[in-house]
Nucleic acid binder design. Structure first.
Lengths: 228, 228
DNA sequence: TTCATAGTTCGATCGTAACCGAAGCATTGT
DNA sequence: ACAATGCTTCGGTTACGATCGAACTATGAA
């Protein structure tokens, strides 16, 4: 009863381990099929199907059918932010799913968060952009400066195109592994796409981690030097 | 299984209607007893007790016993932010607990959000502070300017004291009713306390709403004029 | 001491939701 | 046309957790 919006429904949706795992996997940004999601959830396809239907009815997921596959994605960036913020919160309270395992290091170094770069490299990139004066920061807020705009044009990103989108250009996103902010928003997405296009890095098969090529690694570290 | 922190536990904690109601009530900022919380949850004291134990074990609540009462509060501001952000999310997807009721208007006008002012008045205050140049805003980030510091001193708030706290001075908090930002952080708290101390406003008995006296209303509107 | 209030713990009940096997559609490939 | 793949729906089982009555502990008041 009472006043205000109902958090319980959403909490309950996220509260099931299988569903939580699927949502976390979708934070990786790429669309996944029901079968793949059943895998990450550790359940059979039938069960996954009902879970996915619930998540979609709750407005957390969107699906588009393509051929005989059904691809699921997070409904929008707001969902991704909610999940990541819950992850940050959970990590802070020590709610961990397991002790740090073998795959963890790669994940901490660089991973994808919905559609932008997170992890150690993500944090480093934002720090560097701020230090060079390309991005101005007040608290959690970020804004691209004129210097930043021209710097980005030089590496092949036209900010004009991005501005037209309804989505905010710069947005900070709290990292659960680093507990620091990294760059989200359409600019964050554009930067990551840029790296992938150039072949500096590529997505890993079934994980959220991102692997840099030796050459890409060098370029990235040169472009975004650590602070003095 | 897999990687990363466990969202499911927290989701499940929030996912029960009774617990969600209790948490929402505690967003009102004041400490409540187990019996009171049982009331807002619509359950018996026994059931509430087990719920509260779970919430505390999960790190969402803190309790301190005083006499034969046990007062519960949200563990910290991070919990409050999580709850409010979930409310905003839920409101956006139309997950409402009921159709707009009679008490709603008061709640939309001015209510307490953990320890600062939210609702229409909260949003107006922040807008006005930004318009007057007392607070600088970039995206979601907020910072107090020198002008703001002297303005505040004039109404009896010494910012120096606040800076010493570990808690951030300015923080934006998304309003579920207005869907706009209002001012949180230690400054937001100080401002609300200031209004209460001056007798401009007072908390309502068992609700989150805040009622302004006629005189207080006048003063508030004069101090924080709507934008031209 | 005795009584009353506040809260926890125990035990049992009950409902719901997660789960999977099997069957049913739909789309693609041969 | 037929088979294979991807997914949904149905039915029945099972398990977990929310719930409350009752008994127990603790603090305060008479």
């Amino acid at each position: 009863m009472k006043e205000g919006p109902d958090i319980a429904q959403i909490g309950a949706l996220i509260g099931d381990p299988a569903r939580a795992n699927m949502l976390a996997a979708l934070t990786g940004g790429r669309a996944l099929t029901a079968t793949e999601l059943a895998g990450v959830g550790g359940i059979t396809l039938q069960t996954a199907s009902t879970h996915l239907a619930k998540l979609e009815a709750g407005g957390l997921l969107a699906q588009r059918k393509q051929g005989r596959h059904r691809y699921f994605t997070l409904a929008d960036e707001a969902v991704a932010r909610l999940i990541e913020s819950m992850m940050g919160f959970a990590a802070g309270r020590g709610h961990l799913r397991h002790r740090p395992g073998p795959k963890e290091p790669a994940l901490r170094k660089a991973r994808i968060c919905y559609d932008h770069l997170a992890g150690d490299y993500g944090v480093r990139m934002l720090d560097s952009l701020i230090a060079s004066g390309a991005i101005a920061a007040i608290g959690d807020g970020l804004a691209l400066t004129e210097k930043g705009e021209s710097d980005l044009k030089r590496i092949g990103i036209d900010v004009g195109d991005l501005r037209s989108s309804r989505r905010p250009l710069c947005r900070s996103c709290l990292d659960w592994s680093e507990r620091r902010a990294h760059l989200a928003g359409s600019l964050g997405k554009a930067l990551l796409s840029n790296f992938l296009d150039k072949g500096w890095a590529r997505r890993t098969a079934e994980s959220r981690s991102i692997t840099f090529s030796p050459e890409g690694d060098r370029q990235f570290l040169r472009l975004f030097p650590a602070e003095a």
